[in-house]
Design a protein around this nucleic acid. Sequence first.
DNA 1: GGAGTAAAAGTCAGGATGACATGAAGTCCG
DNA 2: CGGACTTCATGTCATCCTGACTTTTACTCC
Lengths: 234, 234
Amino acid sequence: MTQPDLAVSTVIFALRGTSSENMVLSLPLVRRIRSPFEGTWALPGGPLGDEEDLAQAAGRNLRDTTGLEPRYLEQLYAFGQPDRSPDNRVVSIVYWALVGGDEFAATFDDENVQWFDADDLPALAFDHALIVEYALWRLRNKLEYSRLAHGFLEPTFTLAQLRKVYEAVLKRRLDPGNFRRTVEASGQVVPTGERLAGTNHRPPQLYRFNTAQGLIDPDPLTIRTALTHPGVAS
Amino acid sequence: MTQPDLAVSTVIFALRGTSSENMVLSLPLVRRIRSPFEGTWALPGGPLGDEEDLAQAAGRNLRDTTGLEPRYLEQLYAFGQPDRSPDNRVVSIVYWALVGGDEFAATFDDENVQWFDADDLPALAFDHALIVEYALWRLRNKLEYSRLAHGFLEPTFTLAQLRKVYEAVLKRRLDPGNFRRTVEASGQVVPTGERLAGTNHRPPQLYRFNTAQGLIDPDPLTIRTALTHPGVAS
DNA sequence: GGAGTAAAAGTCAGGATGACATGAAGTCCG
DNA sequence: CGGACTTCATGTCATCCTGACTTTTACTCC
């Protein structure tokens, strides 16, 4: 039995758009510069360094290849089908990350790194299409019961902005009143006391995320908080 | 950068006990027969074969070292801290599995394979204590919204037996009436039409799992079904 | 044949959710 | 200056879900 190669890749998500309207979930891809799949778009990734843990390797490879700085990083899955690479055997440990919508400028000015709409991707190398599909599912699924929308937003935001993040990711319209009620009741969010000026209407309250409340369902290496789930009965 | 060793290990769960009362969640461990941690209890595992995918490697290593046959197998997490093994660098891709309560006899008659209560584990090699803790969290969390209790049960069972599985895993008492209501409404389970004889009371209806309904939140390599979650609002 | 046991079904109050309505606080323009 | 317009913010209401509890049914045991 020969040791397979080990790679660490990341599916990076950001919300592209005019920060209030028609936001689109999108992700950066890198063009492969060597065989196999030379010239094809692929997920950013690379090898595992000697002194790094897996999350550090994911973050470093992400930064090195795209110039982006992740606000949220979580392990997705390890892919190891024997035939997923035509040449050597490669096991990929894949992470997924969120970056802010202002990060597009930070992307390398390089024709080999480009952003694509999550719903309109080009042909991808290896099994990366499957990986992206799974990451998308995980993002949407997790957004519903965890507070990770902060990965897309500035430290301070309005509830309408937060709602639009949810709407863009889930591709579904949410009732503003009900959204306000549930989000405020959840304690995920605290009003700063300030209001957003410069609108052509009633100025909305600004909020920030409640740092006292931990992230739900994190990596096993971080501290976990209790999770209240729908439950089975009684 | 040197390639790390790659291992595939599995946390195996079974319910031990008199099949109706005082069931205890327990798991088999193997005693290490080589350095490092020689003589210490550890998770069953081994290398990745050339032609295997990761799940196959987990199942094979599990069978080879314990003799058990998993009824449910799912990837848990990839662990790769640089210092998790004192000697060489090892990245472990860890799965978790469920086996039936009747599988204790199938365990190798070997002092190097033993069952332990999940709440009363010995000192474990490497970071395996952390891994087991995380697997336990995942099992309990997932049992609440997914239909994987079948991994512990015979093909046919009563609702009381199913409820006792939930109670043993979640370590919490469930109301029989409410449990029946939610489980029947969920469509996870279908009555066979037969009843269980030999009790000293009213004979309970036998059920089997609804095969038409897919497993929720499976591996990315299998087909996924829609998931209805608590949701954020509207 | 009555006591005992668990199965199965039913009841009820409280909380969460979705759909919708109303008032509040600004800007814009004639 | 004042009405139209916009979105924020709050409120209402019917419905469904959940947890706690009660009642009836069907069997065995003594």
